[in-house]
Every structure is written in structure tokens, then in C-alpha cells.
């Protein structure tokens, strides 16, 4: 049986991990979907079709992210990777969006 302080600490760490992977994982899935849609547009797929396809597929990205994130729940790098990649992909989509939307 874990002492109370350790149990509370474990709960907080797990809640943070849950937030990082399950909530920020959604951001990462969305960022990847946005970039994939932009890439499809770059190779000639109409923007509406590309974005529709990648938004529908974003749930697969999400499932993969969450499963990967929890396969090793002692790793500190997995949630941090999700958060870092989410920030990067969202910023990249933000930077590329005007060029796509104005064409």
C-alpha cells in the first residue's frame, strides 16, 4: 500500500499525463491533419476534399497517439513528445495556412 502523499503525487502525475496525451494529443492529431491537408492541396487535391479527408482521418491519428502515449506510462518523454509535436504542428499549420487559403 502506497503512503497517502505518494498516492496523491501518483494521481497528479497520472492526471497530467492523461491531459498531455488525451487532450494535447487531440491538438497533435489536428495539427497533423492540417499539415496533411495542406500537403494534399500542394499536390493538386481540392482544398475542400483534402481537408475533409484529413479531418475524417484525424481520429486514426488520435487513437495511435493515445495508444502510443500509454504503452509505457512510466516514460516522461512520451507526454512531452506529444506536447512538443502538437505545438510544432499547430505552429506549422498556422504559418502555412495563409498561403493555402489565399490560393
Amino acid at each position: 500500500m502506497m503512503p497517502v502523499a505518494r498516492r496523491v503525487g501518483y494521481g497528479i502525475v497520472m492526471a497530467l499525463r492523461f491531459f498531455a496525451i488525451c487532450v494535447i494529443g487531440w491538438f497533435l492529431a489536428s495539427g497533423v491533419a492540417g499539415l496533411a491537408g495542406i500537403a494534399l492541396h500542394a499536390v493538386g487535391v481540392p482544398l475542400s476534399d483534402g481537408m475533409l479527408a484529413t479531418s475524417l482521418l484525424s481520429y486514426i491519428f488520435y487513437i495511435v497517439i493515445v495508444i502510443w502515449g500509454f504503452v509505457d506510462r512510466t516514460s516522461i518523454w512520451r507526454p512531452l513528445t506529444v506536447v512538443g509535436l502538437a505545438a510544432l504542428t499547430i505552429m506549422a499549420a498556422g504559418a502555412l495556412a495563409p498561403g493555402v487559403l489565399d490560393t
Binding site: 487531440w26 491538438f27 489536428s30 484529413t54 505552429m91 499549420a93 495563409p98
Partner: peptide, 18 residues
């Protein structure tokens, strides 16, 4: 759903249309 996370870009740059 996919656009909700992208709306956070506007927190840093209100003009961004991502």
C-alpha cells in the same frame, strides 16, 4: 473538431487564419 485546436494559434496571432 479538427479546427478547435487550430483556433489556439489566434491566441498568439489574432490575424492568423489557420
Amino acid at each position: 473538431y479538427a479546427s478547435i485546436p487550430l483556433s489556439f494559434v489566434q491566441l498568439a496571432d489574432p490575424e492568423n487564419r489557420a
